[in-house]
Amino acid sequence: MNWSLPSATLDLSPHAPGLIMGILNVTPDSFSDGGAHVGIDAALAHAREMLTAGAGIIDVGGESTRPGAAEVETNEEIARTAPVVAALRAELPSSTLLSIDTRKAAVAEAALAAGADIVNDVSGLTHDPRMLEVCAQSNAGIVIMHMQGSPESMQDAPRYDDVVAEVRAFFQQQLKTCEAAGITADRIVFDPGIGFGKAHEHNLRLLAHLDTLAPANRPILLGVSRKSVIARILGDTDLSKRLWPTVALTSHARRQNVLIHRVHDVQENHHALRMTEAILSAR
């Protein structure tokens, strides 16, 4: 259960401390914090805050993938993200792990050259034909997420016969594809893609079976922070009311051996991880 990255090998076995991946959106239109961290100074300030609050990874994204979002032109996405990654690498402690959240090979390539350690692809390496090659030629960690459709249309009418089995089968196929391209399994973690081409019942089924999804005993990353599945259950679309349900999901997922949690609110979720782990270790 190790995750091999360019500058570190992370222990992601069930008894290891979980990791918080702090979300750093440098977009004007992300669903929760669009425009809040645009510009290098604002991005650096927020990254420092997240590290102080307990983040182990900073995930930089330059394209909103909320339902209905239009695709950002490649050069624009590079202009948004590569300078921020370079500034983070230059300014933050060398132990800071940096991730690029993109489905485009050229964006990943530019971010890796700027110092990123991880490629986090919401399409699971399926959107851009060159992404597999770019990842294979690097030694970066890779997050393979499941998404049915594309952000523009993924929530129109998602359908599955068995969402748990189909997500698991996608992960198994992508692991085989990566290994055939020379990407070893120890570089890969998997994300079930809550809210990405899933109806409400699909999200809940996946959340109930997180510990059954990953092939080859690989780690799971969960990104459910502030998502609409919470609003559906609460019957309230107020974003400010999604913090504590996200914290509850972090604790629930940690009990299913989810070791990486991608969140907006770092400190609260970091505390939930440590409390849950203290209870698990006392068994």
Rank of each mutant, 00 (worst) to 15 (best):
L92M: 15
S94I: 10
L98E: 02
A108T: 10
A272H: 01
S4F: 12
P17C: 12
V107Y: 09
H270G: 07
S228E: 07
D238F: 09
L222I: 03
E49H: 10
A272C: 13
S123F: 04
R130H: 14
P28S: 10
H270W: 15
E277K: 04
E133M: 05
P158W: 02
R187P: 07
V38Y: 01
V84L: 09
P14W: 02
H15L: 12
S123R: 01
H271Q: 15
T126D: 11
G34Q: 03
L234W: 11
M145N: 03
A116M: 07
E166F: 07
H209Q: 15
R103C: 11
Q155N: 13
G62M: 01
C178N: 03
V84Q: 03
L132E: 03
A47S: 14
R262A: 11
I144L: 15
A105D: 05
A8R: 13
T27A: 01
M1F: 08
A16K: 08
A16Q: 09
L88P: 05
V263Q: 04
E152D: 06
G182E: 01
M21Q: 03
D59C: 09
I78Y: 03
P93F: 06
P129K: 07
G61K: 02
S13M: 11
L44M: 06
A42W: 12
L206D: 04
R66M: 09
A180S: 14
A8V: 10
I260A: 05
A278T: 15
N139M: 05
F196S: 00
D191C: 12
P6D: 07
P192G: 05
N75W: 12
S281T: 14
G197F: 00
R159F: 13
A45L: 12
L243E: 12
S228F: 06
T9S: 15
E166K: 07
L207E: 09
G195R: 01
Q137D: 14
M145G: 03
M21A: 10
V189W: 11
A8Y: 07
P93C: 09
A113P: 02
D236M: 10
R226V: 05
T126V: 05
Y160E: 07
E49K: 12
H46K: 13
D121G: 05
V247Y: 02
D211M: 04
L259G: 06
E277H: 07
E76W: 09
E179I: 06
V247H: 00
R218N: 08
T102G: 00
P158Q: 02
L44Q: 00
G68H: 10
H146T: 08
K176M: 14
P151E: 02
I118T: 06
L210D: 02
G39R: 05
V258E: 00
D265R: 05
T184N: 11
L280P: 11
A169I: 11
S99N: 00
E91K: 10
D161E: 15
L98F: 08
Q174T: 12
L132G: 13
I194M: 07
A253H: 08
L88F: 12
N139F: 12
S95T: 15
K198P: 01
N257H: 13
R242S: 03
V266Q: 04
S99F: 00
R130Y: 09
V119W: 04
D238T: 13
D191S: 11
L280E: 14
R187L: 10
H271E: 15
N217P: 02
F196V: 06
L221N: 01
A69H: 07
A185Q: 11
G35I: 13
I230L: 06
T246A: 08
H252Q: 14
L206N: 01
E91V: 13
